[in-house]
Amino acid sequence: MNIFRFLGDLSHLASIFILLHKIQTTRSCRGISFRTQALYVVVFIARYLDLFFRYVSLYNSAMKLFFIASSCYILYLMKIRYRPTHDPSIDTFRVEYLLAPCLILALIFNYKFNFAEVLWSFSIWLEAVAILPQLFMLQRTGEAENITTHYLAALGAYRALYIPNWIYRYFTEGLVDPIAVTAGIVQTGLYLDFFYVYFTKVLQGQKFELPA
């Protein structure tokens, strides 16, 4: 564990608390893509199935359980508790176009050709692109509540912070995880446009609005 990874994980935790806070206080899931949230449930379950056969640390297991539980809870909030506030007509990104390529990538790029490893690789690729329905929705509406942009910024920062972690691990442990690194760079890259608007507008006190 190094500082970058720890800050990345904290940022990931923070993003979930911000999202929960947004839903609970506004009593609405407006502006949040259900499809992206559902993809995260798939990502976490696929990746953290190793809870059953691999023990890394208490920290690691606790975080895994938290991410699975919180992502399922968010789906519950969106689908049942605050269902009327979710507008499916603007959340239309076809997730098949993400799931199928990720499955193919996982079958080609994995560290061992068995069920758990292919599933792990699948979750890594899927996580990289799971934000696309959300970004697509943002693009369509052209604006977002501030709290939603804070959520996205924290979520984007999480994988971005893993990049210095991988550089650090390369120099200190000689370890490189090419699948995670490649997907992580793609994942961070998808946020660049968003980060640009976030830093130049939201953090300057303006509303998040995309140029028409």
Binding site: R5, D9, H12, D50, R54, V56, N60, M63, K64, F67, N110, Y111, K112, E117, W120, Y162, N165, R169, L175, V176, D177, A180
Partner: peptide, 10 residues
């Protein structure tokens, strides 16, 4: 175990 890091990251 094929992964270089042993999947010790989240």
């Amino acid at each position: 175990e094929g992964a270089p890091t042993g999947h010790d990251e989240l």
